[in-house]
Amino acid sequence: MIANQIMFFLLSAMIIVFSILTVISRKILRAAIYLLFVLVSTSGLYFMLNYQFLAAVQLTVYAGGIVVLIIFSILLTSHISQRFEPAGLKKSMFSAIAALTGAILSIVTILDYKFEATAIAAKEVDMRLIGKSLLSVDYDGYVLPFEVISVLLLAAMVAAIAIAKKSGPAKTQSPTLKQE
């Protein structure tokens, strides 16, 4: 067993274990931390796959951005020590069955298929290539999605504002938190 295999299995084990912990943990903040571990491990996988740029993005945006956002919101909405009632047995059972069925179905189907690697040589994924592709208007260029996603981000920002913004006299006073 070579090093990268060990590495892979280690990362996989972490991902799987922490994923499961994320979805079953009864303390919400812990769940968020487990999620962080999952994301970090995943970025490890990306490194293994030689996608350093993406791994970095994963770490910054996901681990650094989203998880922090989530933790903030947890802090806003929950007591840290709050423990959840576990999900009802029936609910868990059925969900587990469904998820397992789906997993088995997907895995069986995936294993059924013979993936054949292409003979064309791999490109070296360096920042220049990424940058070029991202700004290229030709085939395999991604400038359009790149531009559109900026609209998306703008829209998301406006959306978040629109939800949070107070407008006019409130008919009903918000019952608990005073924000903004």
Binding site: S19, V23, I28, T77, S78, A87, S92, S95, I110
Partner: peptide
């Protein structure tokens, strides 16, 4: 690995009670 993670996520979606989780 991805499939397991995916369906774990699904499981979580179906069972967690907290909107944030």
């Amino acid at each position: 690995l991805a499939a397991i993670m995916f369906f774990t996520g699904i499981y979580g979606f179906l069972t967690r009670r907290n909107l944030i989780t």
